[in-house]
């Protein structure tokens, strides 16, 4: 590719392509070590929160891949989540297929559905809110299908009987899910970290920043948008399987509802959309807050969600670029150099 392309990319990718800072590495290491030893030191109740954080952070990273990096704003990740959950659970309960295989089958199924949604939307050039609405409509369609199909166990959903056997993705105690969740989160985070350093990742960002310009430079935007969507859909399906195996029950009003899609988005916006660690930071904030309000306002049904919603609203207004954006702003302020027309062009 020409110099112009490189230039455009450099500008589009901008600050996001930095290495990690020393405090960042320390914090990350400390957090990882903490999660690893947590089964030895924390109660089951606290471990449950850790698992939720890991699961939501993972889900958020999946959304981040497609919507944060590639700019294709999905409001229907519940569709992929539900497909993953249903595929592995039904294969297990009906045919006795281990959820480890079921998980892969779920990924494949979500990939296929994702490709269909992608081809339809991108061929017809849907963007922004319109694309978000299409993904939402697809998720709703799957909810209606699941609720009305006897083969899919209709409204009562699928229940998995617990039997302690790791080959069936069922662990004794919480530790297994803590480690499984940690591995998933680590893998997808590493994936994103590497992705944004590759050409493909840079094309994603270029498409997000200015799709027309990206196309004009010869980037096959359709192909890259499809890649982002399908990968995101497949990874999201894994979160669905994880959920089903952990809670041992799924039904259409749990896995195909828009709350699931919102769960995927909130940590990203809180932490920082299109950043590697933003969604993790976001999940570490929102889940404890949500847990806290649940416990604190247990006597007054609804008050927990009022508080949660208010926090959400306030954060979006006050921190439009998330925690990572705020940190960047503080850093920039500290390192502020005198005004000169060339200051913005520097490395």
């Amino acid at each position: 590719m020409s110099n112009i392309t490189g230039d455009f990319l450099k500008r589009a990718v901008g600050r996001k392509n930095k290495g990690m800072s020393v405090p960042g590495i320390l914090l990350l290491t400390a957090a990882t070590v903490f999660v690893i030893i947590s089964p030895q030191i924390l109660s089951n109740y606290r471990l449950n929160l850790i698992i939720t954080i890991l699961r939501i952070a993972y889900l958020a990273q999946c959304w981040n891949l497609m919507s944060g990096y590639c700019g294709q704003f999905s409001f229907g990740h519940a569709a992929f989540f539900g497909i993953g959950a249903y595929t592995s659970s039904l294969l297990y309960t009906e045919l006795g297929v281990t959820p480890w295989i079921g998980m892969l089958a779920g990924m494949a199924a979500a990939g296929v559905i994702g490709s269909i949604i992608g081809v339809l939307s991108f061929v017809y050039n849907l963007k922004g809110d319109y694309f978000a609405l299409v993904t939402l409509a697809f998720a709703e369609i799957f909810r209606v299908i699941a609720r009305n199909t006897p083969f899919l166990k209709a409204a009562q959903g699928v229940s998995i009987t617990y039997k302690k056997d790791w080959t069936q993705m069922q662990f004794s105690g919480k530790a297994g899910f803590v480690y499984f969740g940690l591995i998933l989160l680590a893998l997808i985070t590493l994936f994103l970290y590497i992705l944004q350093r590759t050409r493909t990742g840079q094309y994603f960002i270029a498409i997000r920043e200015n799709e027309d310009a990206a196309r004009a430079l010869g980037i096959n935007t359709f192909r890259y948008k499809m890649t982002a969507l399908v990968l995101s859909a497949m990874f999201t399906a894994v979160a669905g399987t994880f959920y089903a195996q952990y809670y041992l029950h799924i039904d259409p009003e749990i896995v195909f509802i828009s709350e699931v899609s919102v769960d995927a988005i909130i940590p990203c916006i809180l932490g920082g959309v299109g950043t590697v660690f933003g969604p993790i930071i976001g999940a570490c904030i929102i889940e404890p807050v949500s847990e806290f309000t649940n416990v604190h306002f247990a006597s007054l049904p609804g008050m927990n969600m009022v508080t949660y919603g208010l926090i959400l609203v306030i954060v979006i207004i006050a921190l439009p670029n998330g925690v990572v954006g705020l940190a960047d702003r503080i850093r920039e302020k500290r390192a502020r150099r005198p005004l000169s027309p060339n200051a913005t062009e520097g490395v």
Binding site: I265, I269, L300, G309, L312, I316, I317
Partner: peptide, 28 residues
Amino acid sequence: NPIINAPSHNQLLLTQGLSIVLENLLLV
């Protein structure tokens, strides 16, 4: 008004947040 020029996912999530607040306020 404060987010009128923000990216659309922020706007969408904000109205979603309002929806959560309103519904649960009614519940309370």
